[in-house]
Design a protein around this nucleic acid. Structure first.
Length: 297
DNA sequence: ATTCACCTGATGGTTACCTCA
DNA sequence: TATGAGGTAACCATCAGGTGA
């Protein structure tokens, strides 16, 4: 970290490479500066897009393939109930898990899918039937949303797969669904929710990290300002130059970079504790790069 | 037994991208 | 070649049932 006194403001530039270690190689660049330092008061957080599986839409090599196997599948109904025809994968996809728990049936989503028999959108039918007037309480209870509970084994397999890749192409989705005895839609929903919740957790962690980082910087800034005040006070005291065995300011040469000297120049010192006899302050150029020692006469 | 917070499966809306006429 | 429609898949906000404290 570098600290450069510039007028009355303190500029801080922090490179937090160490913070990135627990974030799978992502890097955090945080530049915080005083208001009088232009173009440097932004937070650069490149990992958000680089790390996040949602940074961009991955092109799906199978996206061109027809996705008919999802049509007409009620994720919470057995294949028979769902009215599947034939013995192909589409039917397999509709098999409800023998391991998972389904308390009751809902399938709002699938209800609005195309009716495999009629080929029409059932959305309107659903609205008319389940929300319409005159529906009995029994029917209402039957149509109420019921929830599947994945078994431990199913969850473990899904978690394991998610660790390998956070998105699935249709082939992988279907294979996984068949393996787990779920519908592709259920696998899809699980991955979607998992991605969303992973992202939420990551965001919370990032916020916490930034909060801590900000607190540290604030404290560091306060400390440095106190040091600057102390050093200014010392500089005004003739005692200082006797103790430190350095020449008074009148003997300082101009900085070769910015051609300034004195309080508005580029003299920079480390922590007060480092101000021991024989210490020579170094110069920080206006761009913040340490360039060498102040020339002493 | 009841309440409440939390977890999680599911839904509906929106958007971006692709294909095709 | 440009363009609009339709399909698909992804994300997001939200709902709502289940569960444990």
């Amino acid at each position: 970290m570098m600290v450069a006194e510039k007028g009355e403001g303190i500029g801080l530039s922090l490179s937090l490479a160490s913070f990135s270690e627990d974030h799978q190689g992502r890097s955090l660049n945080l530049n915080i500066s005083s208001p009088d330092l232009p173009k440097s008061h932004h937070l650069k957080l490149p990992w958000f897009n680089a790390f996040s599986p949602f940074g961009h839409r991955s092109s799906d090599p199978c996206s061109g393939a027809p996705q008919v196997f999802l049509r007409g599948i009620d994720v919470n109904r057995s294949p028979k109930e769902a009215g599947h025809e034939g013995d192909d994968d589409e039917e397999e996809a509709g098999i409800s898990s023998p391991n998972s728990t389904i308390s009751s049936a809902s399938g709002k989503r699938s209800e609005r899918e195309l009716d495999p028999a009629s080929g029409t959108d059932e959305h309107e039918n659903e609205r008319a039937s389940s929300r319409g007037a005159g529906i009995s309480d029994e029917e209402d209870a039957e149509n109420s949303r019921k929830k599947l509970r994945l078994s431990k084994d199913q969850s473990a397999v899904l978690e394991e797969t998610f660790r390998e890749h956070s998105t699935l192409n249709p082939k992988q989705k279907l294979a996984l669904a068949n393996r787990l005895g779920l519908t592709p839609r259920q696998v899809e929903v699980w991955f979607q929710n998992r991605r969303a919740r992973t992202k939420l957790k990551q965001t919370e962690m990032d916020c916490e990290l930034l909060k801590r980082c900000c607190e540290n910087l604030t404290e560091e800034n306060r400390r440095l300002q106190r040091e600057v005040q102390q050093l200014r006070a010392l500089k005004l005291s003739p005692h200082f130059y006797m103790q430190q065995q350095v020449a008074p300011p009148t003997t300082l040469t101009l900085c070769p970079s910015c051609e300034r000297v004195g309080p508005t120049g580029c003299l920079v010192v480390p922590a007060a504790s480092a101000m021991r006899p024989g210490f020579k302050p170094w110069v920080v150029k206006s761009d913040g790069i340490r360039s060498g020692h102040v020339a002493m006469k």
